[in-house]
Design a binder for these strands. Structure first.
Lengths: 252, 252
DNA sequence: TAGAAGTCAAAACGGACGTTTGAATTTTTT
DNA sequence: AAAAAATTCAAACGTCCGTTTTGACTTCTA
């Protein structure tokens, strides 16, 4: 009957049961301290990735997790809370890695005097693709890729709150790294980089359909190896602003 | 009580009312020959673009269109039929333009002896962005961009059936245009191009959030002017296949 | 050991959904 | 003008949804 303890701040489990867990505790006797939570997160991650936020019901999720329907509301307050918790579990470490790599870029700048665009792109895109290498990370990679285009307000809220702060830091550094580009140039090149990253993340299978081969986007090292040079070459191009409205002028 | 006449093949309206319309007919007297159909298509296009396939109900659509709920089923059989009809109205002309421009590329190849990658990319991406210039096309541009990442089976069916045939032709021509690339190279560069195109189409507003400026993706000419050089530069890079697994070798 | 708090399970609630029905109405044809 | 076909309409059907309630069971605390 008591109020759900961890529902309002799903990222900070303060439960006594958790505290007991972190001490010694015979591991056989406590067979389900937070097991229900974990089963829900895993089932939700897989189902959201496959069918989208509106495409899955809590009944399907709790069914796959083998737990009661009400458990989802007990642990996560509501459907959006469960969705957000799925993201928080993965995005935290990912953002940490992003920040670490970005700091390394800025540190290198102090020595060489210039920012390496390829390294900045690597620091931004790399962690977001490497989550696929973690156990269970592959499905989350697809989930987050699809979330980028999901119009549901619940999804937009989660994506904005979790990704925006770090993304803004990268935009700032990239702006400094590309002094030859106008704000408009940067806008379109970022659109290209962001779109490519999200498309690889989502891995909709469309290209495999079109090419017919048995190619895969799962290998994050291969993805980085091909993507970074392409995008870096794009950012290296000179500014393209200004001329689009004119009709005929001799080139440059 | 009669069976819906145009429901099964929504793209071919054979209705007698239509035939009467195409003759002379005083245009004031017939105030709603296919007006219900059009109102439904317009309302559905706007609402699907904003909320996604699962995010809108037929009640909301018919409400906005000012028609009866059952009219949607009468004219389009079911929800997927309405969704598909929204696409068919726009994709037909778009695919025609794509094919025309692609044919021009191949014709130029016969003269110059080589395929212009930039022209092929232009022929593929240009028509898909220029639909935004048509009346009502801007909302469809966002709709189709979001549909690329929508996991609903209904959406996937429509997208595959309507876009795949032409897309496959472009893949074939692009393969010929880039003899220096392996199948794997092409896979990743297409992912980049496709992702960038879809991201601009969807225009989620994410980048505007991050950059803070009042930039816009609506201007298709500006979009092409920035995107094509970037992607062309990417396709022009030499092959990147093979080396990713090795640890240390001197470059090339 | 008694009680408080945390956890799970069964059942139900009200609402929204896609779809169907059957008749009324309009339009076209003869 | 009458018959036939096409279209619109109000109402309902059955289903699934997110959420809440209530109560039992377990675990920790004092």
């Amino acid at each position: 009957m008591s109020a759900p303890p961890s529902a309002r701040t799903a990222s900070a489990p303060l439960t006594p049961a958790r505290k007991a867990r972190e001490r010694d505790v015979p591991p056989q006797l406590v067979h389900d301290p937070h097991e229900t939570r974990l089963r829900l997160l895993d089932a939700a991650e897989a189902l959201f990735a496959e069918h989208g936020y509106k495409g899955v019901s809590l009944r399907t999720i709790t069914g796959k997790a083998g737990v009661n329907l009400a458990a989802a509301h007990y642990h996560f307050r509501n459907k959006e809370g469960l969705y957000r918790a799925v993201f928080e579990r993965r995005v935290g470490p990912m953002n940490t890695e992003r920040d670490t790599l970005l700091a390394a870029c800025v540190a290198a700048e102090a020595q060489t005097g210039a920012l390496d665009v390829a390294a900045v792109l690597d620091a931004f895109i790399g962690p977001s693709l490497r989550v696929g290498a973690l156990p269970g990370g592959e499905t989350f990679r697809r989930l987050s890729g699809r979330a980028a285009a999901d119009p549901s307000p619940e999804v937009r809220r989660v994506v904005y709150e979790l990704y925006d702060p770090v993304a803004m830091r990268f935009v700032e550094v990239l702006t400094r790294a590309c002094p030859h580009l106008t704000r408009e140039d940067l806008f379109w090149r970022l659109a290209c980089a962001y779109g490519a990253m999200m498309y690889v993340r989502a891995d909709s299978g469309r290209l495999q359909r079109l090419l017919g081969d048995d190619l895969s986007m799962a290998d994050s090292a291969a993805a980085m190896h091909h993507l970074i040079p392409m995008l870096t070459a794009g950012f290296a191009l000179p500014s393209l602003s200004a001329p689009p409205a004119e009709k005929k002028k001799k080139a440059k």
